[in-house]
Design a protein around this nucleic acid. Structure first.
Lengths: 143, 143
DNA sequence: CCTTGACCTGAACCCGGGTTCAAGTGGCAG
DNA sequence: CTGCCACTTGAACCCGGGTTCAGGTCAAGG
């Protein structure tokens, strides 16, 4: 049976995280050890789950402040608000990374033998971006 | 024709970037103004393009150090190496974000009325992650 | 008894990518 | 001449998410 309490080192090992990070979370008020035995933190199974949850949200790109908000949310409208905002941001991020990925991929298979600044694909993209921001650069000589 | 030189403020406005960032790039040796007029930086069109290129690579998730590497690459094997590494990383990032997105989305449409820690989907994911890292936690004795 | 190892604390430090600040210069308008 | 504005510099600071360090406590084992 062995009361299911883990030391900070065990938790750290299990979650693949540094003990210093666990203490840091506690400082932040995010996740506090359930109890102490002669001064040392002991974590319950439930708290370990909570930590995994924190990791998940972190993976989803939430800041520790946001995660605090989610954990503290009494109202479920509260975490859903945070989640929705983050969902929109995720979509934007994914789109941006996907575009970057395509670009990089094209550049790699462009032609095998010219420097990057002569790459047609890259230059097209640069032109695009310049046009987006309102170009006076190639348009007219004078201000 | 009016030599097509822009002041730092003009470049900043055009690229949607702070002047301080441009000076910072110069400090880093990334992109240096072409010339000076009574001490003030002047940027050529070519240099502005270079800056846009820097922004693109930054969007693709390269660090300024890596970007320096790409810009300095004499050998095209050099930038291709960096690009390939980053491409792999992008794939991983995209996959991770996509997974997080799905999860968050499911959680949002889960049931309309329970706190997040009672969400079936979330708990399934937490279990998964615990199992991944070798679980002794739920195996014996548990609650 | 004494060492060893894991743990404790607060305070300081690290990193990347800038931003901010104080103090000074240059040039043009009124 | 006097503003005024955009520009210059080096140095200091900010942020998030931790890590590192010095110095101390505790329990077990040889």
């Amino acid at each position: 049976m062995v009361p299911p309490f883990l030391t900070i080192g065990e938790v750290a090992a299990r979650l693949g995280i540094a003990t210093s990070a666990l203490r840091y979370y506690e400082r932040r008020g995010l996740v506090v050890a359930d109890t102490r035995r002669s001064g040392q933190r002991r974590y319950s199974e439930a708290t370990v789950r909570r930590l995994v949850f924190v990791q998940m949200l972190q993976d989803a790109g939430l800041s520790l402040d946001e995660i605090e908000g989610v954990l503290a949310a009494g109202d479920n409208a509260e975490w859903k608000g945070i989640a929705r905002r983050r969902l929109a941001q995720l979509d934007a991020d994914i789109a941006r990374l996907t575009h970057a990925r395509e670009l990089l991929d094209l550049a790699l298979h462009c032609r095998f033998d010219h420097p990057l600044d002569e790459c047609r694909v890259m230059n097209a993209e640069i032109d695009q971006r310049l046009d987006m921001a309102g170009s006076a650069l190639g348009v007219a000589g004078g201000v």
